[in-house]
Simulated scan of single mutants.
Amino acid sequence: MKYSLMVLAVLLVTGIFSGAHAQKLFFLFAHGQYASPVQSSFKNDYNFGLGAEGGVGIGTGKTFFTGTVGYTVFDARSGEVGNITYVPMKVGLRRYFLPANLLFIHADAGVAHIKDKTTNSTYSRFTADVGAGAKLGPFEVGVAYDGFSRSGSSGYASWLAFKAGWRFGL
């Protein structure tokens, strides 16, 4: 149900702003990503994460509101823990700098749906990221500090996400 509503919202926003494309009001993006765990207990349990994200940005000038949906799988180091699947839905801000909107910073927050194969449990948690990147024509590269609050007293699972992909619009 949540995913259906999210897809419907993205299609609605795309339809509303498709006529505004020439006015440079919105863009779509899709990135592949490599996640390198940095928080100690998370780093001890998981080698890396691989995933993708896509989203939309709406705004004018240099500041845009963003909506992002992603999917990342974290590879367990041993048989004692299982892989984690992380599916975030976030909203945030992206701010461009320099004359051709070449560099940007961004911050996002939302809810992540997490499936932990260690305990065969599924739960939702707060998630957030902050990062920076560069727009090189239709190609984007960036890095972000990302993570989610872990269940129980495990704290926060965090990683550096290295991203690269395409950007359409604006």
Rank of each mutant, 00 (worst) to 15 (best):
G110P: 10
M1Y: 06
A132S: 11
P88H: 03
V141R: 02
D108C: 01
T118E: 10
F162A: 07
L5Y: 09
D45H: 05
I105V: 15
Q23D: 15
P138W: 12
S154E: 15
W166V: 14
T14V: 02
R150W: 09
G49A: 12
V87N: 13
D129P: 00
G92Y: 03
P138R: 12
V69W: 05
M89C: 07
L50C: 06
L12W: 13
T14H: 12
S41N: 12
V13N: 03
G55W: 04
V111E: 13
L8K: 03
V69Y: 11
L102N: 12
R167I: 09
F139A: 09
P138D: 10
T72G: 00
G142N: 01
K2H: 08
A128Q: 04
Y156V: 10
F104C: 01
Q33S: 08
L50K: 06
L12D: 04
T127Q: 01
A22N: 07
V87I: 14
L170G: 12
M89W: 10
K115G: 08
E80S: 15
G51F: 08
K117L: 12
S151L: 10
S124C: 02
G79H: 09
H21N: 05
S4N: 11
V87R: 04
N47E: 08
A109G: 09
Y156H: 13
Y123S: 14
V38N: 03
A9Q: 02
S149L: 04
M1V: 08
D146Y: 04
F97H: 12
S154N: 15
L98W: 04
S40P: 13
P99K: 13
R125Y: 05
P37K: 00
L25A: 04
S121R: 13
V73L: 10
R77T: 05
A157Y: 06
H113D: 15
Q33I: 00
Y86K: 07
G54V: 05
L11T: 14
T68Y: 04
Y145K: 03
F48D: 06
D45E: 15
Y34D: 00
A30W: 01
D129W: 02
G155M: 14
R94I: 06
P37N: 03
S4Y: 05
F48Y: 14
S18G: 02
A132W: 00
W159T: 05
R77E: 07
I16C: 09
G133D: 06
K115F: 11
M6W: 13
G165E: 08
F65H: 02
G32R: 02
H21D: 01
K62D: 13
L136F: 14
K117R: 12
L103M: 13
Y156T: 15
Y145C: 00
A20G: 08
Y145P: 02
G110C: 14
L102D: 14
R150Q: 15
L12I: 12
Q39C: 05
V56T: 07
T72F: 00
A9W: 08
L170W: 06
Q39H: 10
I105C: 01
